[in-house]
Design a protein around this nucleic acid. Structure first.
Lengths: 211, 211
DNA sequence: GTAGCGCTGTGAGGCGATTCACAGTATCGC
DNA sequence: GCGATACTGTGAATCGCCTCACAGCGCTAC
């Protein structure tokens, strides 16, 4: 029903509304949100269409109501725990980046196999040894995981995660993962991204809409 | 002509061929590459169609030839330099991750405004103060940049980068950038990605093709 | 009260990317 | 040599997302 891209934009809209709006702003028009999100006004309206909050002509959307509706759509009703596997530079960056941002989406379990890291606390979250993976995930009923391990370990970890009940994977390892098709994987391949940018920084016309 | 997504896949194909194939493999079929890349065989063939290397029925594609053709398409003929702005955890992760992987695509300039970091060397690349941005970029004719600074600084940095001649931006800051439309930007929004994964880890049907 | 304006919500259309499906062909076995 | 096989290259069909364009409406001004 709802397109994957649309969900990403909803998340962005919420962030723009809460973090980048003049405090005290009560209403926004679709074209304002569109400008901030760098998409078309029609796109914004279509994305918000299915939400329970509705806009009024001549005022636009109530910001507080809209944020609440976006929360309804995006957040787990009671809260959702996230695990992070791999506490390298990238893992730590993700940690500092996410922690404390969303009340209902928090990294509560971290794993690494380096004994140096095990039992240390990162951003208020203790690092477990990977061997405890299954135990912790099942105990806390964690279904969402960020994978930030070296390429060589990624598939093996993914298999263990899926077996332990994980249904959503954010993969920063540079290998596409093979998972059953009721598991959602989002590949965040940095190499690919950089090579694409490098490519379009050169001769060819970049795929963009005019301003 | 060539679709942006296709370029990303070409980059992936190359990596799979060079890093994840049994050493000594001389030929691959589209369906083998497809399995590794988690796309359809038809997709692979269409992506490779425009390359100068051609496959043979009953043998498939010559690996060495294919890798060379992919290099022709993806790499700058003589080499392309990349700048990295922001040497936080994320910046350092990107650095260690990319350095030395591609002969013709290397991060050669790093910038931060923290005096602690300036003049230190990360992965063989000295960190300059942001004030030297324009000088260094112009001196080295750098047109590709990775932006890994806090949200609040992102747009200002982007403006300076574009003014200094940058034509491709890989943006890890969680704000969509406003740039002229001859500049290619790729947004790598981690928050959005995580919220999307969390969303699809829950009730809804994930958008995936069957195996 | 009423005219006018400008926005929302949305059906319909368009466009780009992916898949289908098949003609052409190199190889193998006999 | 020749038939069978399984793959590549690609036109055509399909699919899904985005944009267009407009009907409907609430607000404002007078």
């Amino acid at each position: 029903m709802v397109q994957p891209h649309a969900i990403g934009r909803l998340s962005l809209y919420r962030r723009l509304l809460t973090d980048h709006l003049n405090p005290g702003t009560q209403f926004v028009f679709s074209h304002e949100l569109a400008t901030m999100a760098r998409v078309s006004p029609a796109q914004v309206r279509r994305d918000l269409m299915h939400l329970d909050s509705t806009g009024s002509p001549s005022k636009g959307y109530r910001v507080d109501e809209l944020v609440a509706s976006l929360g309804n759509e995006l957040d787990h009703p009671t809260g959702q725990l996230v695990a992070l596997v791999g506490i390298g530079n990238l893992g730590r960056a993700l940690m500092t980046y996410f922690q404390g941002r969303r009340e209902r989406l928090a990294i509560t379990a971290a794993f690494d196999r380096d004994p140096e890291k095990v039992n240390r606390v990162y951003q208020g979250c203790r690092c477990h040894h990977v061997e405890e993976l299954e135990t912790v995930l099942k105990r806390d009923n964690i279904r969402t995981t960020i994978l930030a391990v070296p390429a060589a370990d990624a598939q093996r970890m993914a298999d263990r995660l899926v077996a332990a009940g994980v249904r959503g994977l954010l993969n920063y390892a540079p290998v596409p993962l093979r998972v059953p098709n009721d598991v959602y994987v989002e590949e965040q391949d940095m190499t690919t991204a950089l090579e694409r940018v490098a490519y379009f920084a050169r001769e060819r016309r970049p795929p963009r809409r005019e301003d």
